[in-house]
């Protein structure tokens, strides 16, 4: 089989194609999907998943995972609300919240790399812990009176187009993440760490430092997402972004990032994110209940672990029958 064909059936390409098909079908068949306002909602609601998916992709490629991302986002939003209530300037609050995200990531990273604990267990623990702290910080309050220019930035769109105003900054972050993963020695080493940690260590790659850095980046991006979330929905509550980790992990795996590490592309992951976002949008337009949407997300998560494996198996079988 020619190489171009083998490449064409790669899972991330499949997901990209699925996304296109879904967008085309929905704009034809689903009322209210294709207009600029709905599309800007779709993208705006998907941005939190997309923002966290960037570092999460790198983390999963390196063979680790962080399930505390939504709680870090919630904590960051809660601290932002509390400090705002205390009268601090938003220009001071935002850097502090980002710093908090770094600390959250550092805690995860140190527990995983220094104590050798499995990241799945560690971050389930901090998932609970960070959310608990968020509740202590803000209680049942909802802080909504953030400065309007910030609210407008997070919720508005570029003129009458379908793009949210926050989209260009996201694009910049996306490009940075793509370059880091696919065009730098650091990114290249992540694939080696994920696919063969010991061999990576024997090749002089600083495995622990690398992983620690990724956890910190994930914490930072989660905190940024928490700030964006509170502004986008004009509400800082301790339970902001609850359950978001499920969407992020589902989207990243759906995009063909191997749960065992060492395999995948950021393009695929982002296609997965927007495929999931578009599905959720369509379901909302069709009045599918929130509970059912979670069921769909869960099923997608399972399928997305299965899908790439089946695709690889088919590729192997085809290669064999032709070779």
């Amino acid at each position: 089989m020619p190489e171009s064909l083998t490449r064409a059936i790669r899972w991330d390409t499949v997901v990209g194609a699925l996304l296109l098909v879904l967008l085309l079908l929905s704009s034809g068949l689903v009322d209210g999907f294709g207009n600029a306002l709905n599309l800007s909602f779709l993208i705006g609601n998907t941005l939190p998943i997309a923002l966290i998916a960037l570092p999460m992709t790198l983390l999963v490629v390196a063979g680790e995972i962080d399930l505390s991302v939504a709680s870090t986002a919630g904590l960051s939003g809660a601290v932002m609300g509390r400090l705002w209530n205390e009268g601090m300037a938003i220009e001071t609050i935002i850097p502090l919240c980002l710093l908090l995200g770094v600390v959250c990531g550092l805690v995860n990273g140190l527990l995983v790399t220094r104590l050798g604990l499995p990241s799945l267990a560690v971050t389930i623990g901090t998932l609970a812990a960070y959310r608990g702290v968020a509740q202590i910080v803000l209680g049942a309050d909802a802080v909504t009176d953030f400065p309007s220019q910030y609210l407008d930035f997070a919720a508005g769109r570029l003129g009458d187009s379908f793009l949210p105003r926050a989209f260009p900054p996201f694009l910049v972050l996306l490009v940075i993440a793509v370059v880091v993963l696919h065009a730098t020695p650091f990114g290249r080493s992540l694939f080696a760490v994920g696919a063969g940690e010991e061999a990576a260590r024997f090749a002089g790659i600083r495995v622990k430092r690398t992983k620690l850095l990724l956890f910190v980046a994930t914490g930072l991006m989660s905190a940024l997402t928490g700030i964006f979330w509170a502004l986008h929905y004009a509400s800082a509550r301790y339970d902001n972004a609850t359950g978001l980790e499920l969407s992020v992990v589902a989207a990243v795996l759906l995009g063909g990032i191997d749960f065992d590490g060492g395999r995948g592309t950021l393009g695929g992951a982002i296609a997965g994110v927007f495929l999931l976002g578009a599905l959720q949008n369509v379901m909302s337009l069709r009045d599918v209940s929130a509970q059912s949407q979670i069921v769909v997300t869960g099923v997608l998560l399972v399928l997305s672990v299965l899908g790439p494996r089946v695709a690889r198996q088919i590729a192997v079988l085809r290669a064999r029958s032709s070779g």
Binding site: G196, A199, A200, G262
Partner: peptide
């Protein structure tokens, strides 16, 4: 395990 990343 140490010399090569077998999947690469």
């Amino acid at each position: 395990a140490q010399g090569l990343v077998m999947d690469l």
